[in-house]
């Protein structure tokens, strides 16, 4: 990788420069919490944020998007172009970049999803180092570090940033928009001390030993009934999850009934009808089966295909769940047989 150092006071120059060519999305305050939103003034950015309410997935996979416009009479597609404007996501934490890498696996492969991938191509990612919050457990999955998938990653060294440039584009925007200098040995030493401090600052630990085996071996365990009894099937966990990608598709007709749009929207395996087929059979009718499926898929289904678990430990689901179901207490219950 290619490294540079940026004086902290100069960072707004980078944002201003980028804003001349890109839509810049960055974390801003919303009440007591934070959200990703378009910014024009660097002063609005809150790079000290803990986590955002919604993950950045919506900039690639919106909660609702038109796949195509169609004509009913001859069942023709009128337009299935993907409209993606150049954009920069500024200030992503390692967990959220890692989450995008996991989403990439799903939306690429044998069948490439042009909607997601076009936006991905059109978007620069600038990551930033963070401080673990109360609900963070990325350390459990080793997603507290990120080594690719971004253009530039900024590690906060106090008065300056240690900038890792992963892509040509990343190196180019630094050189064009912000004063920067070569890395010295002192910078590297400070970088090491910061990342070690970061690694040692996590409070959460979870025993993930042999989780895929436990998920199978304890498939009929009563712990799932207990979680099922608590779950409200609200789907909040999926909506705030940076790696949940399930979707629904529906057709909406124009008032004249002659044309319309095919739209995809976020969906959740926690919703009752998710696995129901046309003539009445519902393969996951009980809430217990749905809660279980979500964990089963994240910790084993996805792993069986891509050799990673489908969780980055961002803690958003733990914050969002009104019933207090968290990955930590599900994992603990699988290990101990007791639901906390």
């Amino acid at each position: 990788m290619f490294f540079r150092v940026i004086d902290k006071a100069r960072l707004p120059d980078l944002v201003k420069g980028l804003a001349t060519e890109y839509e810049v999305i960055a974390p801003i305050a919303k009440g007591e919490q934070f959200v990703y939103a378009a910014v024009t003034d660097p002063a609005d950015m809150r790079l000290d944020y803990d986590t955002t309410l919604l993950p950045p997935k919506r900039f690639f996979f919106p909660s609702e998007e038109t796949l195509m416009r169609f004509r009913v009479a001859d069942n023709e597609v009128l337009d299935d172009e993907v409209y993606a404007a150049p954009r920069v996501l500024f200030g992503l934490h390692p967990c959220d970049i890692n989450a995008l890498l996991l989403m990439d696996n799903v939306f690429s492969g044998k069948y490439e999803d042009p909607y997601y991938l076009r936006r991905r191509e059109q978007t620069l990612l600038i990551g930033i180092s963070c401080t673990p919050s109360e609900t963070c457990f990325c350390n459990v999955w080793d997603t507290n570090e990120v080594h690719w998938g971004f253009d530039v990653f900024l590690t906060d060294l106090g008065d300056r940033y240690f900038a890792s440039c992963r892509t040509v584009k990343g190196a180019e925007i630094l050189d064009r928009f912000v004063e920067n200098r070569q890395v010295t040995d002192q910078d590297t030493t400070d970088f090491q001390s910061v990342v070690h401090g970061f690694k040692n600052s996590f409070k959460r630990v979870a025993d993930t030993t042999q989780l895929p085996v436990l998920l199978d071996a304890k498939f009929d365990s009563p712990i799932w009934d207990e979680f099922g009894d608590r779950c409200l099937s609200c789907g909040a966990c999926s909506m705030v999850c940076p790696t949940c990608y399930c979707f629904d598709v529906e057709d909406r007709l124009e008032p004249d009934q002659k044309s319309g749009v095919r739209v995809r929207t976020w969906d959740s395996c926690q919703f009752k009808e998710f696995a129901a087929v046309a003539h009445g059979q519902n393969f996951r009718e009980s809430r217990a089966s749905r809660v279980k499926y979500r964990y089963y898929h994240k910790q084993w289904g996805y792993l069986s295909k891509f050799e990673r678990v489908l969780c980055v430990g961002c803690g958003r689901c733990a914050r969002a769940c009104p019933a207090g179901i968290t990955p930590e207490n599900v994992i603990a219950a699988l290990q101990t047989g007791e639901v906390r």
Partner: peptide, 12 residues
Amino acid sequence: VGKCGHCGVGHQ
């Protein structure tokens, strides 16, 4: 095409 998630059965 293996994206929407609705047909999940076990780990597949």
